[in-house]
Amino acid sequence: MSLFGSSEKKPELKTEFVFDTETNINQSSLAKDVKINGSLESTDYIDFGGHLTGTLKSSTINLKPGSYVKGTISANTITIEGEVDGDIQVKDLFIKSTAKIKGNIRYQNIDIQNGSIINADLIYSS
């Protein structure tokens, strides 16, 4: 009841609301020094810069330069700028020039930039 009376809190609520409609996605960002042993899951967007041993699962995953993942990665869209050692299961895969990949890639669409180092088995699945 005191909330309705308070005029000071109104602007805060308004800015929060605007922020929510603009982004409209759940975005997780993990920095360089993050180290994970286990599984990391999200339903939206993961921006990953750290080291992970285990499983990474989301709708969209962006592996930043310097990142390292050993294990299994599955997502709708994956952009790789870091290092991956393991299995990748994806619909749209974008491999950038700084990427280093070892393992198995199961994909539907692939885009590879000059300079990337890939030693992997590619399995195309429509």
Binding site: D92, N109, I110, I112, N119, D121, L122, Y124
Partner: peptide
């Protein structure tokens, strides 16, 4: 190596 979106590759790189 440069691969354009839409190309199909089945095998070993």
């Amino acid at each position: 190596l440069q691969v354009s979106y839409g190309a199909k590759i089945q095998g070993t790189l």
